[in-house]
Design a protein around this nucleic acid. Structure first.
Length: 231
DNA sequence: TCATTAAAAGTTT
DNA sequence: AAACTTTTAATGA
């Protein structure tokens, strides 16, 4: 038993079709936990015991190459499940989950994944849908990496970030969590210097407004044009 | 076109 | 003050 509010889950895709009593059951089985920023919730290769739902905050999914370079695979926005090794029939986590800012999570033991999938219609299909979407995104990025120039890759990455993790502000759309130029370079396979120079140039052109760890896209349309510019 | 190296300036804690 | 982040410039693949 815990005192989590049922409204936490009612609007989230994996649980949208559940009746109130079912949501109560799911919540009572959940373990809530708070994480400070820049902590790892689990590490690539760890035995996967639980799966997680992000209630608040933002998660970076990170993979480390054999050379020790880290690559940011994708970001998790509030309301999404992560660490769903069970869905892929894996017994270790395929990547590391780092908190980008302060995060609030619920988690359940993996054994419950199969129970939820069996008991609650819509749970499995919704999850396979998000899994498919993430795979599609990662696929697109592979193509981008191979075919596009750095400027376009960074532009595309910013656009994805404001689409998935954006928040409207007075002067444009802000990326809703702290992000450094180093982070952006880890997402685009370039260096922090190049990202820094690009952001400075775009700031002069009025496309973005960035300060330390904060990026606001002020002119998404121009960024789109840039991201589509020919080779 | 972009990475690397170095150096300096700015920010946060 | 120390640690971290960002900018700028020079050099070379």
């Amino acid at each position: 038993m815990n005192n989590l509010d049922e409204s936490l889950l009612t609007n989230l895709p994996p649980f949208r079709n559940l009746a109130k009593a079912q949501i109560r059951t799911v919540l009572d089985l959940a373990t809530p936990k708070r994480f400070n920023r820049e902590l790892s919730i689990f590490i690539e290769g760890d035995p996967a015991g639980r799966f997680y739902l992000l209630l608040d905050g933002h998660i970076r999914v990170v993979r480390t190459t054999p050379n020790g370079d880290q690559i940011i695979v994708l970001h998790i926005a509030p309301g999404q499940l992560f660490g769903i090794a069970a869905a892929m029939h894996r017994d270790t986590y395929p990547a590391t989950a780092m908190t980008a800012d302060e995060c609030l999570t619920l988690s359940w033991p993996n054994a419950l994944w199969h129970k939820f999938a069996a008991d609650y219609p819509g749970f499995a299909t919704e999850n396979y849908k998000t899994l498919g979407e993430r795979m599609g995104e990662v696929n697109n990025r592979v193509v981008e990496m191979a075919t596009q120039h750095v400027e376009q890759r960074v532009a595309n990455t910013l656009l994805r970030l404001i689409n998935q993790n954006g928040k409207k502000v007075e002067n444009g759309i802000a990326i809703d969590f702290p992000i450094t130029r180093q982070n952006l370079s880890d997402m685009t396979g370039t260096t922090l210097h190049t990202v820094s120079r690009l952001l400075s140039a775009w700031q002069k052109g009025g496309l973005v407004a960035s300060t330390r760890k904060r990026v606001v896209v002020t002119d998404p349309h121009k960024l789109v044009l840039l991201s589509e510019a020919g080779i």
